[in-house]
Write a protein that binds this DNA or RNA. Sequence first.
DNA 1: CAGGATCCGCGATGATACTG
DNA 2: CAGTATCATCGCGGATCCTG
Lengths: 103, 103
Amino acid sequence: MHLIHSEKCGVRRAMMLIGSKWKMVLIGCLKDGMQRYGELKRSIPDISEKMLIQELKDLVEAGLVEKTSYPEVPPRVEYRLTEKGQKAIPVWEMVERFGCDYL
Amino acid sequence: MHLIHSEKCGVRRAMMLIGSKWKMVLIGCLKDGMQRYGELKRSIPDISEKMLIQELKDLVEAGLVEKTSYPEVPPRVEYRLTEKGQKAIPVWEMVERFGCDYL
DNA sequence: CAGGATCCGCGATGATACTG
DNA sequence: CAGTATCATCGCGGATCCTG
């Protein structure tokens, strides 16, 4: 029996982390390695800058993504999955497969 | 290269189907077989009736869940995963595992 | 028992302009 | 280049009451 009703339910905790509109998309962007902010923005043309920043910040705060800023001009900021974040890649693959199968 | 920007992106289509707050929870409830409306409600004490009905309807319209009403008094309604819906079970398992790993 | 209907707040999402 | 700030919107999710 799964503890659907409790905080111990993995599904519910997971959905709080990766259930929003863009998080899985971002994880897909980062699954093969580091990406700069501008690359992410170009990869996802229909995300607003606000949401891109916000979702990245959420992922950083959740410990799934690591952000590195270089004090240069022009600025350079890199995002990459942490070890924890890489554990989400199998989820991404399953979600992707499901979405394709569904057609 | 994945087509993040297009409608062909599996992840984005998948998130439209299973990305809302309760859909994965419901798929988890139904993954082992049929459940009656009341059983679902008791399994998820903190979902409102409105959301339960609405999310079930979404899943039925998406073809992931099948609903069977028996014209009895009192009414009996059964929900079960369709073949398409069962394809979401591996997704559920990955999400569950990720949520537990994350602790 | 299994819902439908209605009203509503708030958070999620977005558009636009501006900045170090 | 990589953000911030501000303002606006939209629908998710919930509370409550009603029905076959």
